[in-house]
Simulated scan of single mutants.
Amino acid sequence: MDKLLEKAKKIKIIFFDIDDTLRLKDPAFMPESINEVFEKLREKGIMTGIATGRNLFGVVPEVRALKPDFYVAINGAYVENAQTEEVIFKNTFSKTLIAEIISWLETQKSEYSFVSSDSLRISKWTDVAAEAIGPIYAELAESPDYYKTHDVYQMLTVSDHDDQLVLPEHLKDKIRMVRWHPYSSDIVPQEGSKAIGCEKVLDLLGLTAENMMNFGDGLNDRELFDFAGLSVAMEVSHPEILEKADYVTDRVENDGILKALQFLKIID
């Protein structure tokens, strides 16, 4: 307990995942306590950031209304100052790499989606896509050649056999897959992660990892839980995230974030 409270005293910025952390993905619900949390953090002079696998288009209005200081989007591939809209960092896939990924996915009979900074497109909208992607982004327009004319920061696999997809050797040193749904995985750069995006923010602010706290629940938060000075997992988190957490709090619908920050004496 004393060690946790000592860590908490050093926190100057807190990053929050969206889905099932700030807000229930299904049904779409964010408790009023989240607004209270952000207001109290501002009063304390503690900065806030959103660290999400979503792109900016997918950051829903109620999350934008919280007025965070930074967006670390697309699993760290796109970082923006939320107040000035200045792009701090971006990491796009080359068109050659995307063509290689598509060629592989086509042999696996998997559809795919492109993620740009503020929009998404999909090779083909199917019932499987509707189940995996629909609750977050609604129906996507079909555009298998979208990458030829737009910057792409991330791709998604979309198939009912996603757990059987295995990267071929020629792609393993370039990309990795992070499953976020039974029917879909994020395809991210081999060295890409939310942690890298958050580190860019810390560098800008002249802060270190011990000044940073994060809340999360999924495997795309894994690197953040290794990086941040203080990490809090939601009760519903993946077992690996629960194991890495400094502290485990209640579910978001039970005001878990507010409870954790009060327990750690960061806010009243």
Rank of each mutant, 00 (worst) to 15 (best):
F227E: 15
A28W: 15
I13V: 10
R251D: 15
V232K: 07
L140V: 08
A73M: 02
L242R: 08
N81Q: 09
V252G: 04
S94G: 05
A99I: 01
K90H: 12
A51K: 00
V252Y: 09
Q154W: 04
P239S: 07
A77V: 01
W125Y: 09
A141T: 13
M177Q: 11
K25R: 12
E6H: 09
Q83W: 10
T126D: 12
L120K: 10
R222S: 10
I74C: 05
K44L: 05
S117T: 03
N211W: 05
L261T: 02
K265A: 10
D69K: 11
G206Y: 10
M155L: 14
Y147Q: 01
L24E: 13
A132I: 07
I122W: 00
E131G: 00
T249H: 06
E243I: 00
V72Q: 04
V87Q: 05
K109M: 11
P189E: 02
K109T: 09
K124Q: 11
N75T: 06
K67Q: 09
E191F: 02
D255F: 04
P168R: 01
V188Q: 05
D162G: 11
W125I: 06
P31I: 08
D203R: 15
L224F: 07
E191G: 06
P68I: 07
V248A: 09
L56A: 06
R54D: 07
L224S: 10
E36V: 14
P168K: 02
A129I: 04
K3Q: 13
D17T: 13
I101H: 00
A260V: 00
I257D: 01
E210Q: 13
L5P: 12
I267Y: 07
F15Y: 13
E131P: 00
E111P: 02
I187K: 01
M177A: 13
E32T: 15
I136S: 09
S110W: 02
A51G: 05
K3Y: 14
D2R: 14
L204D: 03
Q108P: 03
E100T: 04
T249S: 07
E6N: 12
K44M: 05
A51D: 03
S159F: 10
E6Q: 13
